[in-house]
């Protein structure tokens, strides 16, 4: 009897906490949506939001430069990081002797935990001056932000890529090698295609991390609110502008909705990424 009772209580507890979890998660997203309602419901809201003019004191809420900034920085960072990360993952999972392998994986996992302030600071000291010497100007630029972000994403991507490659059943690899394929051919024809769903998922995780990164990017991107003129031009992303203008519109002021709109854009982008990633997982 007591066991039945305990079982029932446990069922209720897990159910209640899972419910609370879902409600809190939805609440987080709902609070952003409710907060941005005044701007979303204003006339011609979409046209004004997608304008390139950001001057909230004059009622200009164009967040297009930040959407462009976020997209360009994240994509460029991934273009830089993916080849290096793939190479590192191949080295860790195929080249290193099996004794060293778990340690290498652990080191990569440890590197993912380095705080982003450290990267931002390194970017200020090393990346910004290099970009300045290369392209003139101040050095604070989308390119500098992308490089810092790429270095920051490299351990995460390498770790996830290595896990993806190791998830492929060794019997496929052995079979391929036994049939006379070279290790290179096995890698390109068997290993990578078989791991593709996990590789894409790892890529999406990195995209999400890149889009959400604030501190490291803020320190090197320059924070210019006008539309960036090129990779060497300063700019801003949704997250950095959120941090910059957070002080202007604390919760409870009318303009706070503008910040909520940017947060909403980020959360919506994340939700879309999650959907895409869920689709890819179905195939595995």
């Amino acid at each position: 009897m007591r066991e039945r009772w305990r079982e029932m209580m446990m069922t209720r507890l897990t159910w209640a906490l899972s419910g609370a979890f879902v409600i809190m998660g939805l609440g987080l997203m709902a609070s952003v949506l409710v907060g941005s309602w005044p701007i979303l419901m204003a006339p011609h809201s979409l046209g004004r939001l997608l304008s390139p003019l950001w001057d909230p004191l004059q009622g200009q809420w164009g967040i297009l430069p930040f959407i462009v900034g976020s997209s360009v920085v994240t994509l460029l960072a991934l273009c830089l990081a993916v080849p290096f990360a793939l190479a590192s993952a191949i080295s860790v999972s195929r080249m290193l002797p099996p004794v060293v392998r778990p340690h290498a994986t652990r080191v990569l996992a440890a590197l993912t935990a380095i705080p982003s302030v450290v990267f931002g600071w390194w970017g200020l000291q090393m990346v910004v001056p290099v970009v300045r010497n290369l392209g003139g100007g101040s050095g604070f630029s989308l390119l500098a932000a992308a490089i810092v972000l790429a270095v920051m994403l490299w351990p995460t991507l390498s770790f996830l890529f290595a896990e993806a490659l190791q998830s492929v059943s060794p019997s496929y690899v052995d079979a391929s090698l036994a049939l006379g394929a070279t290790p290179d051919q096995t890698l390109v024809r068997i290993l990578i295609p078989c791991a593709m769903p996990q590789l894409i998922n790892a890529f999406l995780v990195a995209v999400a991390r890149g889009l959400g990164e604030t501190m490291a990017v803020q320190m090197v991107i320059g924070g210019q609110v006008a539309m960036p003129q090129g990779l060497l031009s300063p700019g801003a992303t949704l997250t950095t502008q959120l941090l910059t203008d957070a002080a202007l519109y604390p919760p409870g002021t009318r303009g706070h909705a503008a910040l909520d709109v940017m947060a909403l854009a980020l959360v919506a982008a994340m939700a879309i990424l999650v959907r895409i990633s869920a689709r890819w997982r179905v195939g595995t």
């Binding site: 950001w54 803020q218 320059g222 924070g223 210019q224 609110v225 006008a226 801003a236 941090l243």
Partner: peptide, 11 residues
């Protein structure tokens, strides 16, 4: 008047 929108913004 406003500072130019091309300005670099530091926190």
């Amino acid at each position: 008047h406003r500072v130019t929108p091309k300005a670099i913004v530091m926190l």
